[in-house]
Simulated scan of single mutants.
Amino acid sequence: MTKSTPSHWVSAVSDITPEDIFIRGYPMQQLIGRLPFSAIAFLLIRDRIPTPGEARMMDVILSSILDYALQKSGTVAARVIVSVNPRMTAGLSAAMLGAGEYAVSPEDTGRFISDGLATWKGSGIPVEEHATGLVAELRAAKRRVPGFGHPVFRGTDPRAERLRVIAIENGVWGEANEWYAAVHRAFQAAANKPDLVMNDVGMLAGIMTQMGFTPAEMTGLALLSTFPGLVAHISEELQSGAINRIIPDDQVTYARVRRDIAADAAAVGWPLDK
C-alpha cells in the first residue's frame, strides 16, 4: 500500500484546469463581465460573493486612498527611486514600503478596533461607559488612539464622512463602527479636543472590520487603492526626464562637525600615521 505524502502547498483561492481557471470554485469565464472588479476582489479575499451593498462599499474602499499628492512619503519614495532606476516595478515596490503605522495602512487601527470590540462585547457594560474607561487607560499610559487626528482637517474629515454615509446606505455599518465612534467621542471629551477628527484611515478600518476583513487584509486593500495614483506619479516622473532626485542642500541643515581621526583613533588604541 502506497503511503500518501502531505502536500507542500494547500490553497483554496484558485486552481487551474485545461478548461478554465477557477476562482474560489467559480469558473473565471463566468465571473468576467458579470461581476465588477470590487465584487471579485471581495470573493477572492472573503471566500464568498458579496451582497450588492458590500460590493458597492468595496468599490468605495478601493477608491478612497487614490492619491495624496507629494505629501505621502511612499509617493515621494517612488519618484526618487525611478529617477535612478526607471522602472514602474521599482517605483511601486518603493511606495509599498511607505505604508505603515503612520500612513496609508489601516492595520494597526483595524487591530485596535477588533481587539477593543471583543473586549467590550465580553464586558457586559454599556458602550459609552466602556469607551470612557478605555480612553482613560490609554491616556494614562500615554498611548495614542490610531485613526484619530489630521494635520489639516478639523471637526470633520470629509473623506471619512463620505465613507460613513455610504456604509450606512449600503448596510455595512454596525457595532464595530458604533464602538469606535464611541471611543472617538470619549477621546474628544477627555482630551478637550472637540475638533479632533476621525480620519479616513480610521473610518476605513472600522468599516472593513465590520465587513469581516482581517487587519492584514486591510493593508492590502489600502495599498490596492493607492495603485492608480502611484502609477500616475511614477509615469509622470519617468516622462519628466529628471535623473537622480536628491534633497537640495538648502533644504538640509548639516551638523558640519570636523573631527581629528588620528587623535580619536589613538585614544581607543589605533595609532594611525599623522
Rank of each mutant, 00 (worst) to 15 (best):
K3E: 15
S4G: 11
S4M: 09
P6E: 14
H8L: 15
W9G: 01
W9P: 00
D15Q: 14
D20M: 02
I23T: 01
R24V: 04
M28E: 01
M28F: 04
Q29A: 04
Q30A: 10
I32K: 01
I32T: 06
P36S: 10
P36C: 12
S38H: 13
S38G: 10
A39N: 07
A41S: 11
L43Q: 03
L43I: 00
R46N: 00
D47P: 05
I49M: 15
P52M: 12
P52I: 12
A55S: 15
M58H: 10
S63W: 02
I65V: 03
D67A: 13
D67W: 09
L70Q: 04
L70S: 12
K72M: 08
S73P: 02
G74L: 03
V76K: 08
A78V: 01
V80L: 08
V82A: 07
R87G: 07
R87Q: 14
M88W: 08
G91P: 06
G91K: 08
S93L: 12
S93R: 00
A94T: 11
A95M: 07
L97P: 02
L97V: 10
G98K: 09
A99Q: 05
G100W: 15
E101Q: 02
E101S: 10
Y102D: 11
V104Y: 04
E107M: 07
D108C: 05
T109H: 06
G110R: 04
S114A: 14
S114K: 01
G116M: 02
L117H: 14
T119K: 12
S123M: 05
E128S: 15
H130W: 13
T132K: 15
G133F: 05
L134A: 06
V135Y: 08
A136K: 14
E137A: 10
A140D: 14
A140I: 03
R143D: 05
R143A: 11
R144Q: 13
P146Q: 05
G149W: 09
G149T: 10
R154D: 09
E161P: 01
R164H: 11
I166A: 14
N170V: 03
V172W: 07
V172D: 04
W173L: 06
W173V: 01
E175N: 09
E175A: 13
H184K: 01
H184A: 10
R185I: 06
F187S: 03
Q188S: 00
Q188R: 15
D195H: 06
L196P: 00
M198V: 04
D200N: 08
V201G: 05
M211K: 00
P215T: 10
A216I: 09
M218G: 14
T219M: 06
L223I: 15
L224Y: 06
S225L: 03
F227R: 05
G229C: 13
L230G: 12
V231K: 13
A232G: 10
S235C: 04
E237D: 05
L238G: 12
L238R: 13
Q239F: 00
G241E: 08
R245V: 15
R245F: 06
R245M: 14
D249A: 11
T253C: 09
V257C: 09
D260F: 07
I261W: 10
A263S: 14
A263T: 05
D264H: 05
W270V: 13
D273H: 06
